[in-house]
Design a binder for these strands. Sequence first.
DNA 1: CATCATGTTATAAT
DNA 2: CATTATAACATGAT
Length: 268
Amino acid sequence: MPELAEVLFYSKEWAPAVGRLVKRVELHSRARVFRGCDPTQLEEGLLGKKLLKCLTHGKQMLFEFSEAWLGIHLGMTGELKLASSPYDAKKHDHLVLHMSGSSVLVFADPRQFGAVRFSVGPAAPPWWRELPPQPIDSGFTLSYLTELVQRSPKQPLKALLLDQSRFPGIGNWMADEILWQLKLNPQTLPADLSPKAIRSLHAMTKKVCEVALATIGVDWSDPPAKWLFHQRWSSNNPCPRCGTKLAKEQLRGRTACWCPKCQRLPKR
DNA sequence: CATCATGTTATAAT
DNA sequence: CATTATAACATGAT
């Protein structure tokens, strides 16, 4: 599920426990989600610590504890839940933090493409500090985007949008949404984008992020009714704009969904 | 039983 | 070296 806005929504699930102390750490140490850290160190390092902040950046989440940092990536099927004690861990609950008061913080992920990271110290870990600017950040300027686009002139635009080092937080549905809104074919080559088209890409990337954050990110409510979002997973899927049956095809190993009539390759 | 899934990464091939 | 394709990961839904 999780792209930019879904990640924000899930991160806020744990927010009610800000100010609480970790009383007990429950984890399945052999779960694949712990491949990026030492579960024992995590358990010992979190015990007794106070949750200070819930942060997100793109698809990454970082939970700041007193002198300790818990990073979580939700992968394809991860989610965070807030429960209250007593709580019995479910089958796919890999990390359960029993906090003071009665709040229980749960990280569940059936497919385990998600990952947990942990570090101790006064400063946020390097991987977090080095994340590239998100489309909604001030650093994501038109000139920054122009350079990004020009650096990969021959990579299909859809693939570019999915690159987390350039568009952190954009996932499969958001990339398809941006391209559909712009009436651009997923195979569009960045080299064929005019300066005007790059300006549109800049504005639309920001807009799709902003609207998604204001709907899904706030309360999981639906994005606007005419968005491609509502059609891309349905079986009978007409283009919301022209009614043409949407096309679906693998591009770089992911399903691209687009309208073959509205979304054209720009003339060069 | 077969296919597909809102993600990332290692490895192979070009 | 840069780019692209493929497989792998583990599980549930259709």
